[in-house]
Amino acid sequence: MRRRQWISAAVAFCAAAAFAAAQAPVSQGAGQGRGGGGQGAGAPGPGGAGGPARGITINANPIQKAHADISGNGITGTADFVEYAQGNGQIVQVIVNVTGLPPGMHGMHIHTVGKCDPPNFTTAGGHFDPGPFGNPDADLNHPYHSGDLPNINSAQGPNGLTASVTTYTTRFNLGGPLTLFDADGSSIIIHANPDTYSTGTQGQGVAGGARLACGVITKS
């Protein structure tokens, strides 16, 4: 009994300290406490117990959202994008859930055009890379594109082949110079092979090769 009280006191102290720390750096209003807090070790930062903690804590309300229905040969899924403020900038949470992908790692990127014509999805263009010096070539300018994202891994589960990833990006957003909603829109593509996160020669396919599935990104 005494031990239980001690533990609950410790947990309460921890929650209070961590909450105070998370509130300190960014005053983003109500704060839904969204984001990958599971990655937060809770260790105090250099500012001491009152400073920011290492790990992902996004203490802000969503600014805007977007969605894509992903499909390919035997593949279906969704991608959801939620933009949050960080400082006076933005960070976008990307959650992708897909079924039917072959097992293993698959490259995943935002592509420049919001058009998914099967079976090859070449209509989606290269990797999203706006700006005066941008280059959408999937090999030559990889992994420097604004639309480059982590791999997604597919594995056999109770409901067949499933793949899920939650990630964040500060390379694009849903409004402003880095918006996905430019004149020709954008799409998300999942490739046949893993993304090696390296630069290659033109046509080499270092970012994942053939396109297995595609989804046009729309505002939601």
Binding site: A10, F13, Q23, G35, G38, A41, G42, A43
Partner: peptide, 28 residues
């Protein structure tokens, strides 16, 4: 309490399959 807190959050954070989930500004 602080030491315990650290241990609790690290153990929680290391639990598999917990990646990327948010927690009300707390470390857990």
């Amino acid at each position: 309490a602080a030491a315990c807190c650290l241990a609790v959050t690290i153990v929680a954070a290391q639990a598999p399959g917990r990646q990327g989930r948010g927690g009300a500004g707390a470390g857990a």
